[in-house]
């Protein structure tokens, strides 16, 4: 459980995420508002997995083996943020903020400043490009090499994956209906499907490569003696299969949102029809 390389940023962010959430839950319980156990579990699990891959001894393995590194990014970019976004924790987190911070008058200008940036990043055409682009970027052999050598670049890499993962799944799993300002369900499904082929191509390229593409693990030594091509094959599979499976799960969840909305509409129609 203890960090391999302690990072105030990772530990602090995870701790803050948990403390705020628990405070929020308590506030809501006092007000008599219930928060689904499933959501609480998804959120805590999401934060815990992110802590697990960045601040435990697992981080050591992720630095010295390709496939464990791919698994780390699978959590940072896909699974962890997916679980967090699925829990839609924003109202709970807001409730968890100390009153003085919640009523801080500076929020409005800050929000106004950040909105254009956020809008751009969450544009339905830009978000998937960013999502896939980052995976590709950090796997450019030269870039990957430098990122694995330099402690600073390594941190930039992992943070960029986690933040982009949060943005992406936040957009996709937004609980707001399209009428409430959420992205249209068709567009969400289109984005989820659009990110599949490039990930398959990349994963397959790595899996079927006969040469070692990422020699940094050779250069720096592996966590334990493992055949480089086996390591690469496993890493490619992780980039390929579970990563694209997440899209499929995403589509199923969007469909459930769609049915939920349709049911609500039906219920509303029925209640209107019977005066």
């Amino acid at each position: 459980m203890l960090p391999w390389e302690f990072s105030l940023a990772w530990s602090g962010a995870c701790l803050l995420a948990i403390v705020l959430y628990l405070r929020g839950l308590r506030q809501r319980r006092r007000r008599g508002e219930a928060t689904g156990a499933g959501r609480v579990l998804a959120y805590l699990l999401g934060v815990a997995t992110i802590y697990g891959v960045t601040q435990t001894h697992y981080d050591y393995l992720a630095q010295y083996m390709f496939f464990t590194h791919r698994a780390q990014h699978l959590v940072l970019h896909h699974a962890g943020p997916f679980l967090i976004a699925l829990a839609a924790p924003l109202p709970v987190l807001a409730d968890g903020l100390p009153i003085r911070i919640r009523h801080f008058s500076g929020w409005r200008p800050i929000a106004r400043l950040l909105r254009p940036v956020y809008r751009t990043l969450q544009h339905p055409l830009i978000a998937p490009v960013l999502f896939v682009g980052l995976i590709y970027f950090w796997l450019v052999p030269e870039v990957h090499f430098d990122a694995m050598l330099s402690t600073d670049l390594y941190q930039v890499m992992n943070w960029s994956m986690a933040l982009d993962g949060l943005l992406f799944w936040w957009l996709i799993l937004d609980r707001r209906t399209p009428q409430q300002g959420g992205l249209g369900y068709g567009k969400r499904i289109a984005i989820l499907l659009a990110v599949i082929p490039p990930q398959i191509v990349l994963g397959a390229y790595i899996v079927f490569s006969k040469n070692v593409i990422f020699d940094v693990y050779e250069v720096c030594g592996r966590a334990w003696p493992l055949d480089p091509l086996t390591d690469q094959l496993l890493g490619g599979l992780l980039t390929w299969v579970p990563a694209t499976m997440m899209s499929a799960i995403g589509v199923l969840i969007i469909l459930s949102f769609l049915f939920r909305d349709a049911r609500k509409e039906d219920a509303a129609d029925v209640s209107h029809a019977t005066p």
Binding site: Y60, Q63, L149, T151, E218, V219, C220, G221, R222, P225
Partner: peptide, 23 residues
């Protein structure tokens, strides 16, 4: 220097492999 090393399993004669950086 962000390199690592590890030890393989010992054989009957006490020999073992060591993984290390090649750089």
């Amino acid at each position: 220097y962000r390199v690592t090393y590890g030890y393989g399993e010992e054989d009957s004669e006490g020999n073992y492999d060591v993984s290390h950086s090649s750089a």
